[in-house]
């Protein structure tokens, strides 16, 4: 390594500085939008997997099995290259020609649908960890099944799964780097591009690494606060990570 010429100032020069800023912004945006899909959809899947209705349970299981057992990168290619071909001709044409920001939207959709399968598993295990008696007690008191979920199961389940949900959010944040394979210029791909233009590989990778670590650290700290604020009285922390 003795022969490596460090060149940190180059990162502050344009256009490289701007590349880092815009890449970082895209990374954050992809993660947040994908989470906005993954959280509600994953919740629905997790709840479906604990439902009394067999068809609902099966649908949830099939979704999780499919999305968790195909590599994320393959899913990315399927959404980007294959799905537009399989859509009805008009839709396919719209997706390919007129949809704004096609790579960005595809990446968000792909990451959101994939992460939903992970969130679904956490929600399911959170609900299943609640003793059966709670559900029975709710029903015995005359609550409808929907009310049992709304007032008994979900408020408890979500508070116990904050740590695994946090790591799923961090997962989608890190996985946003896969968007570079379909041409989204997010943080990792900007670092790679700076390397190609300036040969300052280690400087560029270091900046990207530091930014990923900072966000991860920040999210963990915030979620620990949220967790302690919402802790259920009388329980000890179940914390995963």
């Amino acid at each position: 390594m003795g022969s490596y010429n460090w060149n940190w100032p180059i990162l502050l020069k344009e256009p490289y500085f701007g590349w880092i800023v815009s890449g970082f912004g895209k990374t954050i945006l992809i993660a947040v939008f994908a989470w906005a899909i993954a959280f509600p959809l994953g919740s629905a899947i997790g709840i479906a997997r604990t439902a009394d209705n067999r068809a609902l349970r099966l649908a949830g299981t099939v979704y999780v099995d499919i999305f968790r057992n195909i590599p994320l990168l393959v899913q990315m290619f399927l959404w980007y290259f294959v799905v537009p071909e399989l859509l009805p001709a008009d839709w396919g044409r719209w997706v390919k020609r007129d949809m704004p920001y096609p790579q960005f939207i595809t990446a968000v959709a792909c990451l959101g649908l994939y992460t939903a399968s992970r969130v679904g598993e956490q929600v399911r295990s959170g609900i299943e960890a609640i003793p059966r008696g709670q559900r029975d007690a709710g029903l015995a008191m005359g609550l409808t099944p929907t009310q049992v979920y709304r007032y008994v199961l979900i408020p408890v389940a979500y508070r116990t799964i904050i740590p695994p949900l946090t790591s799923d959010f961090l997962g989608v944040f890190k996985n946003s780097s896969l968007a570079l394979t379909i041409g989204v210029l997010e943080l990792t791909s900007q670092a790679r591009q700076i390397e190609e233009y300036t040969f300052a590989a280690f400087e560029a990778f270091t900046v990207a690494t530091v930014l990923y670590c900072l966000v991860t650290g920040l999210v963990i700290v915030i979620m620990r606060i949220v967790e302690s604020r919402t802790r259920i009285a009388g329980t000890i922390a179940v914390g995963a990570q």
Partner: peptide, 22 residues
Amino acid sequence: NFLRSMPLILVIFWFYTLVPKL
């Protein structure tokens, strides 16, 4: 904790560039 907060793609880029240099 450091490695777990990095995307795998970035880790691959790091080592792909770093190993030959080392």
